[in-house]
Design a protein around this nucleic acid. Structure first.
Lengths: 242, 242
DNA sequence: GTCTCTATCGATACACCGTATCAGGCGAGG
DNA sequence: CCTCGCCTGATACGGTGTATCGATAGAGAC
């Protein structure tokens, strides 16, 4: 603890508290604590200062292991892909493999909701992402109907886009409902009257029908249904081009 | 300009420079300047202080018109939906309407790239969003094959998820390429060697095939292809349930 | 017309962020 | 044993969103 002016003679000053042991760091450890913070609260709860504090270190210590906060996010996302890859590789025809992959992705996102804030937000080149992409590509490429590698790319682009968008919507919804659960009356008092007023204007007849008649399936059913639509679309496109 | 200690007698102090006229504000004006800032740079360039400064006001002045920064984002996104709604409503069968809607959405996102950072990020209940949703629902509901309102919901969920995910990926890509264009050599020197090394490990044979053989279509083609897949999937699901 | 009370507004202040800078401590080389 | 150089991490800076609360202007009563 150096100080510019030192009015107290050193004999009166206590020693610095025992040298904080200087716990050794590593990227793995940093990423683990960051993920723990994000799981417990939010992505916004992940600050370099908090991560460092959780590791008994000053903020700048982390810059030996990464050069930017965004790189920390990249590592976190890659670690989640690592979780998905750790499970046994799925088997079956390409539809089964793609479906299984999407479901595992969804499971991972439910474990780590903050992932949706990162998905598709930055170009991903981490080793686990590449391995994941490879396993998807190899499952699809060479299957009956997929002649050129472009066919595989088209299919993956479609299904990946769907998964990202659907998970984003689902988590957004879950967050909103959770907040609503906390202050139920606040949400009811604030948003419901507004929506009712809008509906009563008569300008949204079909929306009214939704509110009245729609059976709202659970999120996992909805996810699965959309997945079926995209898979069916891929198959239809394959059939048509022959 | 009140000051705690006032050493200079008031007679010596000049009047405040002419009263800054106190430009009248409005939500519309605030949202317009915020959008201008975001268009010019980033979402991160939109800070309450900068918006207020652009309007010759102090930061806290804005809190009379909104109570949180997130509400400003909500207004911005709703305004973009307003742009989409301003065009003449599309006509044709449900496929044509959904396709046209997706293309307009994409056009809007290309005009305002920051929209992808907001899409699906918060529950959207703005009037323009509701109107938009209504127009989509009414275009689909009642079309041949769509018996129950649930069918329309399924179709919209699928296509909306795809659009969100695909646009997110496209814009992310565009941003990366733009950065790469600025420091071409930096990107080449940093990422290309890493990728080459990864490919040369032989653990990613199919990825290698992509790099070697894939024809990389332009983003608009890719978007359109994926859109076709999802539309085909919706149709297939309709046919199957009869 | 004048005085008082009240409600609004916005300057100031606070806690926090990511990260540039650079003094200080520590290890290696002479 | 001394000196030099590197590396580390404390400090500092410029920014953020927003709570607080004194100043101010306007309305209402006498």
């Amino acid at each position: 603890m150096p100080q510019r002016d030192e009015p107290v003679p050193i004999w009166d000053r206590p020693e610095p508290p025992d040298k904080p042991a200087l716990t050794p760091l590593s990227r793995a450890k940093i990423v683990r604590t960051a993920i723990a913070l994000a799981d417990a609260e939010d992505l916004s709860a992940v600050s370099l200062r908090k991560v460092a504090a959780a590791l008994d270190a000053g903020p700048m210590r982390l810059y030996g292991y990464l050069s930017t906060k965004e790189e920390l996010f990249d590592l976190m996302l890659d670690a989640v892909y690592g979780e998905i890859l750790a499970e046994a590789p799925p088997s079956g025809d390409w539809q089964a493999v793609l479906r299984e992959w999407a479901l595992r992705m969804r499971a991972a996102v439910l474990r780590h909701e903050w992932v949706v804030d990162l998905l598709g937000g930055r170009p991903q080149l981490g080793p686990n992402v590449l391995a994941h992409l490879e396993s998807l590509l190899s499952a699809v490429d060479g299957s009956p109907g997929f002649g050129h590698i472009d066919d595989a790319m088209r299919a993956l682009h479609a299904i990946n886009s769907y998964v990202v968008g659907a998970l984003r919507a689902e988590i957004t919804n879950a967050r909103a409902e959770r907040r609503a659960g906390q202050d139920e009356q606040q949400w009811q008092n604030a948003n419901a009257p507004y929506l009712m007023r809008m509906l009563k204007t008569g300008k949204f007849p079909t929306l009214g029908k939704v509110v009245a008649d729609a059976t709202h399936p659970g999120p996992s059913v909805r996810f699965s249904e959309g997945l079926g639509i995209v898979l069916a679309g891929i198959e239809a496109q394959l059939a048509e081009q022959t």
